[in-house]
Write a protein that binds this DNA or RNA. Structure first.
Lengths: 197, 197, 197, 197
DNA sequence: GATGAATGAGTGTTCATTCAT
DNA sequence: CATGAATGAACACTCATTCAT
């Protein structure tokens, strides 16, 4: 039997969850610049000292919260993922999942966006996060090989099929955009026109 | 002819510029969350108290710096702007100017991006900033009227012709993308495919 | 038998007392206008941050200290208070207690006086403080009813039986006045002549 | 012709008066502790630097303002002063003048009270101020010699004929007391009963 | 005489973190 | 495991005052 004294601890899942949610809530409400460990602890209903039982330090708290969200998000995005179906349908499904996720977990998404654009993002190993979304990249490559998708730099493709959806879903940037089914399909149409050969 | 380079006790453009540049440098290096008035003042070579001669408070410093950059950026983007030329050429010119600007003023751009995604952005009157880029919106509308551009929600169009370029130019998100002339034209091709009818 | 004089990490009466005394000492020495949280903390031998464990902020520190003194003072003034004794004796006893208190706790009294005449006094609920001295007011009313004391506005009576003693005891105003037993009795004689019918 | 370069200066009486009034206004509104040279200068409509043309420093500003008020007050108090009239009438006239002064110059009085109870009062030569009121002291002595007034310590007498009137007139201490003619005469009655033989 | 600019020293307060309990 | 208490260091900001103009 292996016991991780330092990394596993007692797992009072209730407190862990409370801290996770408190972190997101506080950061979304007042931003990274003014968020503090004690405010988050108070929101979670625990002592600041207790927070340090679950997280090594403030950076660990913020980074872990981000990674947990990203993991959760990728799970939802890739739900029912079938790499052998029609390419267009695959990406369309991802768009829909994405909008679903954002509608139902807007606070998670908001946190992730804010984190990714803050200097804290430097503390994350990007490749680890990208790994979660690897299946999509593989499909993209397949589309190129099959001459369905334009054979251009990957960053360019990503810039047209992943980022616009994030922008549109971000109320900070697009207050007017309504995440209706029709709008989502329309938007996806542009994305597909952009990348398809 | 006598030229007073330094009119010692009169509001000092040199100091103002030093503060502007120091703000961008410090924020880019350590992020909004850990940037402080004293660090910025030290970088600018003035006393923290002096900073308050030029800016009302920290928020004013950060917001003013952002607005100044946006203004500067719009000036460059719209240089040689001819609303009566061919639509595709207009937008292509903007892409090129954008990449030029970012290449030559990467730190300005980086600051603006970080600012726009921080809670400080709430302090800015968005309409004022959007005003700088209004001519582009008008051209977009013209394209729709002339049935050259898809008749969809403005936010969707913006998400495909303005945001991808920002992503691609942002080294934070696209470390691999090379801002070569060829790459830029390729990328613009996708944007145009997305929005054109 | 083991006695823990200091229960190190439990809210510390010793520190509370040290802060109380330091506040009085510093304010008496340099006045409200130049007293600062850090000076008081240093005098108390704690970190400025520690002060905020015991008090919400500077105002709370100064106001609480004042109220504590007033409470203490009223306890002493009313010690052995017998509302059914002869009126003159009651008030004379208060005068004597007052002088005793001031002699033995001149710094407390000095602080209270300075506080009451500073703008900080606006932060105190006057009725709460007056409550401590209510028994005296009731006796005053009884004296009026029994036609022993002049039937005039309460403020006028207070101005002659409470304030002169404060003036006389205040070395700031009366450097020459010696708080000898004889002097105190003489002074009380005038107070009584003023209010008695 | 003598010219005092340092002490007399240009005498822009308008600015001098503006500073005098601004000092009183600001101090009365926000208290000594938070009053600052720049706030006072702004209220007076001059630059902080200009203030230093008229006053040596902050202390000088506050002290001079106090002394000017005291001088003004003594002038009014002793108006029509006749040391050879009946003693009771002399003091009664002073009471009336005092109330008049306070009614018409409540802000001056308020400033003086706050000043006298602040540590700044230590900067004033008390004897100089007392000199203004000397005639009253002489009359008091005459009353003692003529066996009209009790032969007790001067401080005691002052505590009963001067301080009660200040208390009663101070809205900070006596919010209920109405400065009507009747009330004033009643109050003076008590003062006289206190000191008369 | 009058002033806007400048600043070192200070303000009240919060920070992330540790530690004894 | 959980915590209230403690703190040095930092925070944003204001101070009284000086100085070149």
């Amino acid at each position: 039997m292996i016991v991780y004294f330092k990394t596993m601890r007692t797992r009072d899942d209730e407190k862990q969850t409370a801290l996770f949610k408190a972190t997101i809530k506080v950061v979304n409400e007042i931003g990274f610049a003014t968020s503090s460990v004690s405010k988050i602890a108070k929101e979670a209903g625990v002592s600041p000292a207790t927070l340090y039982v679950y997280y090594k330090n403030k950076d660990d708290l913020l980074v872990s919260t981000y990674i947990d969200i990203k993991q959760d998000m990728s799970r939802v995005l890739l739900a029912g993922f079938d790499p052998d179906g029609p390419l267009r349908d695959i990406f369309k499904q991802v768009w829909v999942h994405m909008f679903d996720y954002i509608s139902k977990n807007s606070s998670y998404f908001e946190y992730a966006e804010q984190f990714a654009n803050s200097p804290y993002s430097q503390l994350v190993d990007k490749r680890e996060v990208e790994k979660y979304f690897e299946p999509l990249i593989l499909v993209l490559q397949k589309g190129i090989d099959q001459k369905i998708i334009k054979d251009v730099n990957f960053d360019i493709l990503k810039a047209f099929i992943f980022y616009p959806v994030m922008m549109l879903a971000n109320p900070k940037h697009c207050q007017d955009f309504e995440t209706s089914q029709a709008n989502i399909e329309t938007a996806f149409g542009l994305a597909w026109d952009a990348i398809k050969l």
